[in-house]
Simulated assay, not measured.
Amino acid sequence: MAATFELRDRRESTRERAPRFAPTTKRRAWRAASLAACVTLWQLVVYFRLSAGFITFANVPAPSDALPALWSLLHSPKLPMHLAASIWRVLAGFCVAAVVGVGLGLAIGRYRAVEDTVLPALEVLRPIPAVAWIPLAILMFPSSELSMMFITFIGALFPILLNTVHGVEGIDPRLVATARSLGTKPLALYTEVILPGAAPAIFTGLAIGMGTAWFCLVTAEMIAGQYGIGYFTWESYTLQNYPDIVVGMALIGALGMGSSVLVKRLGIALTPWYRLQETRR
């Protein structure tokens, strides 16, 4: 028996001495290497002017062309204005979409009458691409700024809404029944059972919605923008300044990825009761 306890103590001490962050560091290194490999492949296909008939890279700027353009933009006095305009439009549209999407999602997922009344119209609107909303947005809003925020709002709304609905529908009915049997009032039922149970799905929808809001940024700033990363990208195309197109796309991608990661981290911090076990290797 003593030998058994001694062996168990040795195993536990070995686990404690093992580097806890080694797998995370390894995965980050692997992802960085994957990204570097993609950039290297991009450089090679442009350098050799690869053409497969249906696609050609003869006129595509290479990463080596985009780096000087990025350096020039980083030293441009317009960069802070571009960033501020885009971030403000995305955050405004995203915040309104979060309030509307989560509120409607909680109601649709909980009450069948609300689902039958509201969801059919939303399902008809959901497949419409953001670019198709531009003429209507110009007609609906007197301000071009509001029109651009509306486009980002449309992009973020439906991922948030659908994930919230699925989160509410996935709650175990026994939890709701138990809360009701204990005399929980309707408001407390939402705040103490339904909202915590649907929170992981809600934050997943918020992270996806943040990414799609940035995805719709170029479409939004095509309307009448004078500043913004999307406007900078579109203007670079009209002026045939192709390296700046790559720079604008890369900035939108980096900002979208960074903001989505922040939303995911916030979700992890606010849902300590929910942890996914690591099943993938």
Rank of each mutant, 00 (worst) to 15 (best):
L136N: 11
V131D: 04
A177E: 08
N163H: 15
L189H: 10
L162A: 08
I138K: 04
N163V: 06
K185G: 12
P129R: 13
P135G: 11
E145G: 08
V193E: 14
L182P: 08
L162F: 14
S144E: 13
L187N: 13
M148H: 01
M148W: 02
V131Y: 08
G155I: 06
L161A: 05
F153G: 01
G167E: 00
L125E: 11
N163I: 08
F150M: 14
I154R: 07
M148T: 01
V168C: 06
A137M: 05
F141A: 08
V168L: 13
Y190P: 01
I171E: 00
G183R: 01
P129T: 07
M140H: 08
L182S: 14
W133F: 07
T178I: 10
L161Q: 02
Y190A: 15
H166T: 12
M149Q: 07
A177R: 13
L189Q: 09
V176S: 06
T184P: 01
I134A: 10
A132N: 12
I154H: 08
V193K: 13
S144Y: 15
I154M: 12
A156I: 03
A137Y: 02
A130G: 14
L162Q: 11
I154G: 02
P159L: 02
V193F: 08
F150V: 09
G155Y: 09
K185Q: 08
P129C: 14
E123I: 15
L139K: 15
S147Q: 10
L189N: 09
E169A: 06
S144V: 14
I194L: 11
D172E: 03
S144C: 14
L161S: 01
V124M: 14
A132H: 09
F150H: 03
I151L: 12
I171L: 02
M149W: 05
S181V: 11
L182G: 08
L157A: 05
G167T: 00
W133I: 15
A130C: 11
S144M: 10
I194V: 11
A156M: 03
G183K: 03
D172V: 00
P173D: 03
E192Y: 12
F153Q: 04
I194K: 03
R126C: 14
I154W: 05
T191Q: 13
L187A: 10
Y190M: 15
L162I: 07
V165L: 04
A130W: 05
R174A: 12
I128N: 03
P142C: 03
A132M: 13
E145T: 07
V176G: 04
